[in-house]
C-alpha cells in the first residue's frame, strides 16, 4: 500500500484478518503454541481463536523478526503464523532483514541454523507492507506540498526494489481521503460483506484444485497458470499491450494472470474478461516507471 500518512493504511491492514477464513481448531492450537512458548498469551485468553496481526517496528532486529537467540525462539513472523504480518514504512526496514523474509514467504516456515543444530518454526503469514509515496510522505497529496527532489524520491523507492518486492502480488495506492468522506453519512463496506466475496472465490478454488497440491490461485504453478488463466484474443492483446506500455517483467505477467483469475472467481465468471485483466494490471503499480 502506497499512500501518505493518515490515509488509513494501518487501519486497513489491521482489518485484513477479519475477512480471511476462520481459523480451524488445529490452526488455532498451532498459533497459540507459539504465543505460549514466548509467554505472550494474555491472562484469561488461553486460546488464540482469531488470526493474529503483527506490526513490528522498522527498528526490529533480525532475530526479533525471524527468530533467534542462544536457545532459538520464535520471532514476529512466527507470531504472525496463520495471520497477517504488517510492515509499515517498508523502506525504513534494514534491507538484510527484509531479505531474510524470502524463505518463509516461500515455505511457510523459517529455519534458524546454529553450528550444531537447526530449529524450524512455523511462519505461514500474509505479508502486507506500507510506504509513503516519497520521503516526506505528501507527494501527490492535495493537503500539503511536497518538496522532495526526484533523486530523493528515486533513492527512497529504490530501497524497496529487489527480491522481496518481487514476491508481493498486489500493489495499490491508498490516497488521502477527503474530509467529507471521513465524516460523511454511510458506513463503508463491512467485513462480513467482504468476507462473503472472499469465501465464494475460495470455494471455486477448492473445486479447481481438488487433488492438486495447490490450494489457492496465488500458489498456481506456471503450468497451472497456463491451464486455468486462458485468455481470448482481446485479452491476449490487452495484456501484451500493457506489458509493453508499462515495461512489465515475465514474472509480473504470471502474477497478473493469477490475480485476474481471482477477480473473475469473485464474480463467479469462468472466463477472464478484459475488465478483470485491467484491474489486475492496475495492481502492479510498483512495476511501472511512475516513480523516477
Amino acid at each position: 500500500m502506497i499512500g501518505p500518512p493518515g490515509s488509513g493504511k494501518t487501519m486497513l491492514a489491521k482489518r485484513m484478518p477479519t475477512i480471511l477464513p476462520d481459523l480451524n481448531p488445529g490452526e488455532s492450537i498451532e498459533t497459540t503454541r507459539i504465543y505460549s512458548t514466548v509467554g505472550r498469551l494474555k491472562p484469561g485468553q488461553p486460546l488464540l481463536a482469531t488470526r493474529p496481526f503483527r506490526a513490528p517496528h522498522h527498528t526490529i532486529s533480525n532475530a526479533g523478526l525471524v527468530g533467534g537467540g542462544s536457545v532459538p525462539g520464535p520471532g514476529e513472523i512466527s507470531l504472525a503464523h496463520n495471520g497477517v504480518l504488517f510492515l509499515d514504512e517498508l523502506p525504513e526496514f534494514n534491507r538484510q532483514t527484509l531479505e531474510v523474509l524470502r524463505q518463509p514467504l516461500e515455505d511457510g516456515t523459517v529455519t534458524i541454523s546454529r553450528a550444531l543444530s537447526s530449529t524450524t518454526f512455523p511462519a505461514n503469514f500474509m505479508l502486507i507492507a506500507a510506504l509513503n509515496p516519497c520521503p516526506c510522505g505528501y507527494r501527490g497529496d492535495p493537503r500539503r506540498n511536497c518538496h522532495c527532489t526526484p533523486p530523493q524520491i528515486e533513492r527512497y523507492m529504490s530501497k524497496i526494489s529487489g527480491p522481496l518486492i518481487d514476491r508481493i502480488d498486489i500493489h495499490i495506492e491508498v490516497p488521502s481521503v477527503p474530509f467529507r468522506d471521513l465524516s460523511g453519512g454511510k458506513p463503508g463496506t463491512s467485513s462480513a460483506e467482504m468476507r462473503e466475496q472472499v469465501m465464494s472465490a475460495r470455494r471455486i478454488q477448492s473445486t479447481r484444485f481438488a487433488g492438486s497440491r495447490t490450494r489457492h490461485n496465488a500458489d498456481m504453478t506456471h503450468r497451472q497458470t497456463r491451464q486455468f488463466c486462458r485468455l481470448d484474443d482481446e485479452g491476449r492483446n490487452l495484456l501484451k499491450a500493457s506489458m509493453t506500455e508499462l515495461g512489465l517483467s515475465a514474472r509480473a505477467h504470471d502474477k497478473i494472470l493469477r490475480t485476474a483469475r481471482t477477480i473473475a472467481d469473485q464474480e463467479a465468471s469462468d472466463a477472464i474478461e478484459p475488465m478483470h485483466l485491467n484491474e489486475a494490471v492496475n495492481y502492479r503499480m510498483l512495476d511501472r516507471d511512475l516513480w523516477t
Binding site: I19, L20, I128, R202, H216, Q266
Partner: peptide, 8 residues
C-alpha cells in the same frame, strides 16, 4: 478482498 480471496 482480492488479496484475501487469492490465498496467502
Amino acid at each position: 478482498c482480492v488479496a484475501a480471496a487469492g490465498g496467502p
